[in-house]
Write a protein that binds this DNA or RNA. Structure first.
Lengths: 190, 190
DNA sequence: CCGAACACGTGAAAC
DNA sequence: TGTTTCACGTGTTCG
């Protein structure tokens, strides 16, 4: 331990604390023998850096309740938490899509269907009537929280869904236009 | 005030707060006469609060390069930027998929909807996602007295319809099994 | 020994 | 008025 600064304590702290050694002295040469600390400039620089960082952080956060130092950090904390939550929600939504698509790859065994659909597996009946006419019957249960959205407004319905087809369906992978045509054929008779 | 202290602040000052001003006092035997500022305790409390906030922020940020005050804020800044970027990317991905759902949610004007859907023919959008995955959007209006019957009971839906396909759909007329498979693929994601 | 980082007490200014 | 927030200069510790 160095004892060199003991006398600094005596003369600087005691009388310095009540005397004028404040910021007026910033960098102007005061006539009095102000023993400026060696780390004075360093400390000033450090403070400035810290202040700048805080300001930058403040500019980054959207909702700032108060410009004070503590509240800036608090707002930053809540902002980060909010962002984290948002990211989680979005990844959840994407995960739902992925799992929905992935599930379609699996060949549906009955137990999986039961597990997925509860007591009611989806049922589809397609009966050939005559020529190219087909009779279609669909029974399904809407899953809770599924990505598919079916909304109805005064008789109009909007259905959005993602589907993955078997590789060799029906004879080759239908392109968008073919699927579009096919679904239009069904809807036209709704 | 409780003196629960984080190890950040090494303030060993307890309830003393009278004249035992830590290190100054033990080497500098001034017999008291330290004019304690009125806001001394307040300032201590403020510092502690600020320190706690910084610590909390530090605990929230994942990658901390250094435990120093400035770097904590810097890391928080980069972390926020990263989170923002992630959110943007995820929303972009989702927007690509469910852009149809988004605009549907936004338009709440029912008159516009009914006017638009009432005059518009049924609309089908099929967008290729990846591989064999397809994103399907259907907008249609149920015709009055049409043959198709859609009943809903406790979340279960029964749809019956007859459809006739174009002669050359997609490459040849799909048989009942193929149609059944295809519709199951869609319904499973409902 | 030097530089970086920090807590501290204090005066002043802001609310 | 008083309470709160801030910047400042300082001593001290650590690498």
């Amino acid at each position: 331990m160095d004892r060199v600064k003991t006398e600094f304590n005596d003369l600087c702290i005691t009388e310095g604390s009540k005397m004028d050694k404040r910021k007026n002295v910033d960098q102007n040469e005061d006539e009095g023998r102000k023993f400026i600390s060696k780390n004075l400039e360093a400390e000033r620089k450090r403070r400035k850096k810290l202040s700048d960082r805080q300001l930058e952080l403040c500019s980054l956060v959207l909702i700032i309740t108060n410009m004070t130092k503590a509240t800036i950090i608090t707002d930053a904390i809540t902002y980060i938490e909010e962002l984290k939550k948002t990211v989680e929600e979005l990844t959840d939504q994407l995960r739902q899509i992925k799992t929905t698509c992935a599930d379609e790859e699996k060949t549906n065994s009955e137990e999986e269907d039961i597990k997925k659909w509860g007591t009611m597996p989806p049922e589809v009946q397609v009966n050939h009537i005559t020529g190219t006419k087909q009779w279609i019957k669909i029974v399904f249960q809407k899953k809770r929280g599924s990505l598919t959205n079916v909304t109805t407004s005064r008789g109009a319905s909007l259905v959005t869904s993602s589907a993955e087809f078997a590789e060799n369906f029906p004879c080759e992978l239908p392109d968008a236009d073919q699927i579009k045509k096919f679904l239009l054929e069904i809807i036209k008779s709704f």
